Simulated scan of single mutants.
Amino acid sequence: MKLPLRLRILITTIVLLLVWGHIAWDYFHGGIPTHYLLHDDNMPGFPNWLGGIILPFFTWFLLYRIHKRIDNTEGDVASESLRIVLFRFIAAALVAIAISVCFIHDVKEIDYILGAVLVLAFFFPIYKSEYLLGWVLGASFTFGAIIPMGFGSIFALVFFIFYTLPRKLIGFFKKPKQV
């Protein structure tokens, strides 16, 4: 199953409506909150309306990357199915929601969750776009959109290194020596 243009437009439109609906709700119920980097008022702040502008473009960009990867036009079979992509998205969104709930209720197990995700990065390709999109959409209700986009992008880079570097090293040392 492929990710057609119509579905990408629909998903991006839904994200656009949800994020601006949330911003409108905040505006009429006490004001639009500002989220601070590292939860410190001395650090730069990002108001939710800024995420309302950037998040739909970010969603469109990641959906395009997913589309390019799973809609294999050169071969007969796509490398991944839309079902696997959806499963990965939901898994990342659930992890982000769990971290958000722990943060709201001041539960200290966030470190353990993030540690488990770091370990999983060695075994699963959690740097892929669907994981990043799930993370950002799952965490944006609590942290705004900008902070999850920034940290998620950094995590994706780290996860890419964790996943690919050991495989490259193993492949390098397994090469037969030429005489």
Rank of each mutant, 00 (worst) to 15 (best):
K2Q: 11
K2M: 09
P4C: 04
R6N: 08
R6W: 09
L7V: 12
L7Q: 11
L10G: 05
L10H: 03
I11A: 00
I14S: 00
I14D: 00
L16A: 14
L18T: 00
W20A: 01
W20G: 02
W20C: 00
W25G: 02
D26M: 14
Y27I: 02
T34D: 08
D40P: 07
P44F: 08
G45P: 13
G45I: 09
F46G: 12
P47E: 10
P47K: 13
L50G: 13
I53D: 06
I53R: 04
P56M: 04
F57P: 05
T59E: 01
Y64G: 12
Y64V: 03
R65K: 14
K68S: 08
G75R: 15
V77D: 11
A78I: 00
L82M: 12
V85Q: 09
V85C: 05
L86H: 02
F87I: 14
F89R: 05
I90A: 04
A92N: 00
V95T: 04
E109D: 09
E109C: 11
D111T: 14
Y112K: 07
Y112I: 07
L114N: 08
G115K: 01
G115F: 05
A116T: 07
V117Q: 03
L118A: 10
L118W: 05
L118E: 02
V119N: 00
L120F: 14
A121T: 01
A121Q: 04
F122W: 05
P125Q: 06
K128N: 09
E130H: 08
E130I: 01
E130K: 01
Y131V: 05
L133N: 10
G134C: 02
V136N: 08
V136A: 07
L137R: 01
G138H: 02
S140P: 06
T142S: 13
G144C: 10
G150S: 07
G150E: 04
F151I: 13
S153N: 01
I154G: 07
F155V: 04
F155K: 08
V158Y: 07
F159W: 14
F160V: 02
I161P: 05
F162V: 05
R167Q: 07
R167H: 05
R167I: 03
R167W: 03
L169C: 12
L169S: 08
G171T: 11
G171K: 15
F172Y: 15
K175E: 11
K175N: 10
P176K: 15
P176I: 11
K177T: 12
Q178P: 06
V179T: 12
